[in-house]
Design a protein around this nucleic acid. Structure first.
Lengths: 348, 348
DNA sequence: TACTAACTCTGAATCGTTTCAGAACTCCGA
DNA sequence: TCGGAGTTCTGAAACGATTCAGAGTTAGTA
C-alpha cells in the first residue's frame, strides 16, 4: 500500500507537506496543494490509521462496551452510535460484558492500549467504572455512560426518562380504572430499574393508592424472570388486574405466564412493558409499552463523545431523553365483576 | 502510560529483551526473564497495541461487516464472532452496510487502513467483494463470508445448510398432508434465499407435486414483505394450506396478514419460518421454524480467520452448518373439508 | 587451554505518520 | 537594492513497539 513517502516523491514535495495538505495543518500554495492531491488520487493513497494513531496518541476508534448485543434492546443503541461515529470518520470497537463486572473491567483495561478516542459504556450489573474512567479522562479520553449509570457516576451520561415513562404508563392504567396494580421490576441496583419503580410509585401516590408490597416483584430483565414473577403475582389474593413490567422482555414472560394460567390479556389482566421493542408488535395481544429510542441514546452518546474529542471541556452533561406511550392491545379496563373471577387465585 | 523503554530501564535490560520476554520470540535466561516480568507487574505495563500494529503491519482487530445489527438474526453472529475473537486476544470492529453495496465498499476500503488481522463479512445485496477481498488477501489478510455468499465467491465461507433446512421444513408440511404449499422467499439474488427455494422445490419434486408459479412469491427478508406477499397468496384460488417463509421476519408478517384476513393459523393455514429467532416463541401461535445457529456461524467464521492468521494456507474452506426443525404450534394438518372453506378466497 | 558452537542479550533500524524548528522564498516599502 | 515580516516548505525527531545482525557469554570438546 502506498505511503506518504511515495506521495511526497510523486508530487516532488516533502513528506511534511503531504501531511499538511491532508490535514490542513499549515498553509500550502494552491499549485503545490494540487500536485499533492493529484498524486494522492493517482496512487489511491489512504493514510495509515495505525501510524496516525501512534503518532497522535489517539486513534479514530470509539470503544463501545455493552452487556450483550444479543439482547434485543442494545443493538439499536449500538447502531445509533455506529452511525454517528461512522459519519464523522470514527469506527466502533464492540465489546460484550454479559453483565459481568469483571469482564467489563478486562475490556476497560485492555481497550486503553488501542488508544480509542472515546468510550461509550452501558454499564454491567454492579458496575463501578469510576476508577477506570478516571484513567481514561487523564489521557484525555471521554467516557459516556448510556441507559443506566453506575452508582455515583459523575461523568457524561445519556439515559431515557425512566421515571416519567413509568409514571405515564402507570397513570394510564389508573385512568382505565385499575386499582390493583402490580409491577415486576428489573434488578433494583440498576438505576433504570429503580427509576421505573419510582415512577410507578409516584403515580400510585398521586391518587392516594397505597402500595401492597407483594405487588412489587424484583427480578432480572428477561423473559424467564417475567414468567416466574408473574406466576407469583397471579397467585395473590386479591389478584392484581394490571401489571407494569420493567421492560418488554419481562412483559413477554408475563404474557406467557398469563396465557398458561388460563387467563386472557387484556380481559382479565392488563399488561404494559417498557422499551417498545419490535417484537411487542407481533405478540397476541400486541404489547403496549413505554417507548424509548435506543437509537437516539446511541447517537446522542456518540455526539457527546465527538464534542469531547473536538475539545469540549464543559462540565459533565446528563442528557435525559423523553419517552412516549405506545398503546396497543394488551391494556384494557379492569374486569367488571372482580368478585366473580379475579379475586380467586389463578389455576397454575 | 508506561512503555517498553521504562520497563527495560527498571529491569536493567535492553528494550529488545523486554520484547522477547513478552513475545517469547527468543530465549531469555530465567533470572532476566523474571526481572522483566516483575517490572511489567510493578508498572502495570500493557503493550501499546497501536505501536505493535504499526510495526507488525497487522493489528489484533478483526473487521466485521454486516448489513444491520438491528436485524434480529445478525447479533447472534456478531456475538459468536466476538466471543471467539476476544478469547484469542482479538477485538471486533463492527460496521453496518444497510445492505447497501456502496456503503459496503466504503467500509471495505477504509477498514484496510486500520490493518485488521482479518475480515468477517455478511455480504450486502448485490455484493461483489471479490476485487476488494483480493486486495486483503494480497496483504495476507483473510476474509471469511458468512450466511450468504456473493456470486462467484471462492474464498472461505460459513453458511447454514439452507437447502436441506428448507427441504426438511417442506417435507414436514407434506407429511402432514398438505398439497397446496406456497413459499415466500427472500431476494433470490441472495444465495441463502435461493438455496431455501431450491430445498422447497426438491421436496415437492420428490413427491411429484408440481409447483404452481403463483405459489412462489419473492420479497425482501422483512415483516412488511411477508405481510404483503401473504395477502397475495391468500387471494389465490385454490388458497394454499401452508406457507414456508424464507425467514422468520417474513413469517411474522405472514402471521399478521393471516390474522387480519380472519383466518386462523394453524387451523386454516400452516406456517413455518427459517432462523428460529427468539421472538418466534412469543407469537400466537408460537412459530415453527428451521433452526440455524447464528452464534455458531460467528464462532466458526472467527475460528477460520484465527487459523488463517496462524498461518493456515490450505485451500478455501466452505463450512456448511446443519439446521434442525423447531416445531411449535404454527403447523398442523390441512383443513379437513377444503371445498367448504379453503377454496374460497379469503376476505381481505 | 584453545577453539567452536550454541545460546543470550543488545542496540539500531524500522513501521508511517505528525509536528516543530527553522530554512527558503516572496513581497513590500524605504 | 536591501531589510524584514510573512508565508511556504523542508527535514528530522518522535510515537512505542518488533526484529535483525551481531556482540558477548557460556558450555562443550579435543
Amino acid at each position: 500500500m502506498a505511503n506518504m513517502k511515495e506521495i511526497a516523491k510523486m508530487a516532488r514535495v516533502s513528506i511534511g507537506t503531504v501531511s499538511h495538505v491532508l490535514n490542513n495543518s499549515a498553509g500550502v500554495r494552491e499549485p503545490i496543494r494540487k500536485r499533492v492531491l493529484e498524486a494522492v488520487q493517482a496512487a489511491r493513497y489512504q493514510p495509515n490509521q495505525v501510524a496516525r494513531g501512534l503518532r497522535r496518541d489517539k486513534t479514530n476508534m470509539i470503544g463501545m462496551i455493552i452487556p450483550d448485543v444479543t439482547n434485543p434492546f442494545f443493538p439499536a443503541v449500538v447502531r445509533g452510535a455506529e452511525d454517528m461515529a461512522f459519519s464523522n470518520g470514527y469506527r466502533l470497537i464492540l465489546c460484550n460484558t454479559d453483565n459481568d463486572h469483571s469482564k467489563e473491567l478486562v475490556h476497560l483495561n485492555e481497550l486503553r492500549t488501542y488508544l480509542p478516542a472515546g468510550l461509550i459504556v452501558i454499564p454491567s450489573n454492579f458496575s463501578d467504572l469510576t476508577v477506570q474512567a478516571e484513567r481514561y479522562q487523564e489521557a484525555g479520553t471521554g467516557v459516556v455512560c448510556v441507559d443506566r449509570l453506575p452508582t455515583n457516576w459523575s461523568g457524561d451520561s445519556v439515559t431515557a426518562d425512566n421515571e416519567q415513562g413509568a409514571y405515564d404508563a402507570t397513570q394510564h392504567l389508573l385512568q382505565l380504572g385499575h386499582k390493583k396494580l402490580a409491577t415486576i421490576t428489573g434488578p433494583l441496583h440498576l438505576t433504570n430499574a429503580k427509576e421505573r419503580l419510582n415512577g410507578f410509585k409516584r403515580a400510585l401516590r398521586e391518587v392516594k393508592l397505597s402500595l401492597t408490597p407483594e405487588y412489587v416483584q424484583e427480578t432480572t430483565f428477561d423473559k424467564r424472570g417475567g414468567y416466574s414473577k408473574t406466576l407469583v403475582l397471579l397467585r395473590l389474593i386479591p389478584r392484581p388486574t394490571a401489571i407494569f413490567a420493567g421492560n418488554d422482555m419481562i412483559a413477554l414472560g408475563s404474557l406467557l405466564a398469563i396465557r398458561e394460567a388460563g387467563l386472557v390479556c387484556p380481559k382479565d389482566i392488563s399488561l404494559i412493558g417498557f422499551d417498545d421493542l419490535d417484537l411487542g408488535e407481533t405478540t397476541d395481544p400486541a404489547l403496549s409499552s413505554v417507548s424509548q429510542s435506543g437509537y437516539q441514546l446511541g447517537t446522542t452518546a456518540a455526539r457527546i463523545l465527538l464534542d469531547r474529542i473536538g475539545g469540549d471541556t464543559a462540565p459533565a452533561r446528563h442528557i435525559v431523553l423523553e419517552t412516549s406511550l405506545s398503546l396497543r392491545n394488551s391494556v384494557a379496563a379492569p374486569p367488571k365483576r372482580p368478585k366473580s373471577r379475579s379475586d380467586e387465585p389463578a389455576r397454575t
